[in-house]
């Protein structure tokens, strides 16, 4: 099957942060969630895909084409939604639309009008007078009105109320009913992804921790809970990260079978959430570096 997005050995060096050789890919027709703590490199990666910043080395292919050499062609079929408003604030929704629309060959005004209506957006209101949620909805309406095949979103759900967040997830899912369309979105609200994402790519401190089908991830990791007396120098090594309190411990593992063998029935094994996996991994690594 063809990859709609393919990133290989991507590097970007900043003074205090660097993206280290990241690689992952997304198949056509699926939703990928891009998770990681703030400052992990999510926005940097998205900006590199959009050619808003220059890569130091590596390869980015969108629709099988190089994202810089074929920039125009690619962007014709990308719908983008960013975490902040980068449109002209003093213009109204309609005025802004009139500026954006002619840039796209396949602009579909009917679709745009439908979304504006569905989202309850006041067409003549100025962008600066819209709420954060409305700005997001407007962005989304623009992104979905030119028959884009790849929807790229940077933290679209942050600052949105749960009702609209669910509504947005439904929209995304209806989009991929058309098997040509993929969605790539970054977020730190992992519950949004727990439901609909097909793939999860987890970035931490500029490196990819994993990029796999969500079901695989949730099945391969387990949350182990037990009494503190079970922990000693050797058993500690069996876990990826451990959180202790005065009554017991909670720990993350990616090898449930081995844990079962060692601790038998003395521990409780639970299915973790994505948030568990993310939090434990981030903390675990920080602990290893001794810098926290």
């Amino acid at each position: 099957m063809s990859n709609i997005l393919e990133i290989r050995n991507l590097r970007k060096q900043y003074d205090k942060f660097s993206l280290k050789d990241i690689s992952f890919s997304l198949e056509r027709g699926y939703i990928m969630g891009f998770i990681g703590p703030n400052g992990a490199g999510k926005s940097t990666t998205i900006k590199l895909i959009m050619n808003l910043i220059k890569r130091d080395s590596g390869e980015i292919k969108v629709f099988g084409l190089d994202n810089i050499k074929n920039e125009k062609e690619i962007k014709e079929k990308i719908g983008f939604v960013y975490d902040e408003n980068y449109f002209y604030e003093h213009l109204s929704i309609l005025e802004m639309k009139r500026i954006i629309a002619p840039f796209y060959k396949h602009w579909d005004d009917g679709t745009f009008k439908k979304y504006i209506k569905d989202f309850n957006l006041p067409p003549s209101r100025k962008i600066k007078d819209l709420s954060k949620g409305m700005k997001m909805k407007f962005s989304l309406a623009l992104a979905l009105s030119h028959r884009a095949e790849l929807i790229i979103m940077d933290e679209p759900t942050s600052g949105l109320d749960p009702v609209f967040r669910i509504e947005m997830l439904e929209i995304l899912q209806s989009l991929i009913q058309d098997e040509r369309v993929s969605v790539f979105f970054s977020t730190h609200i992992t519950t949004d992804l727990e439901k609909i994402a097909d793939y999860i790519t987890f970035i931490n401190d500029g490196s990819i921790v994993f990029s796999r089908p969500k079901d695989d991830i949730l099945e391969s990791f387990a949350l182990i809970k037990g009494g503190k007396e079970l922990l000693d120098k050797d058993t500690r090594k069996e876990f990826l990260a451990i959180k202790e309190n005065s009554f017991g411990f909670e720990a993350l593992t990616d090898n449930t079978d081995r844990i079962k063998k060692i601790f038998k029935n003395e521990v409780i094994i639970e299915r973790p959430t994505l948030e568990d996996i993310m939090v434990y991994t981030v903390r675990g690594e920080i602990k290893c570096l001794d810098s926290y």
């Binding site: 209806s174 009913q177 439901k195 609909i196």
Partner: peptide, 17 residues
């Protein structure tokens, strides 16, 4: 597969599997 995923609000990969 995709319809079912949408209805149940789960991943396409899950229904596919």
């Amino acid at each position: 597969i995709r319809g079912l995923a949408q209805e149940l609000q789960i991943s396409v990969i899950t229904t596919k599997r």
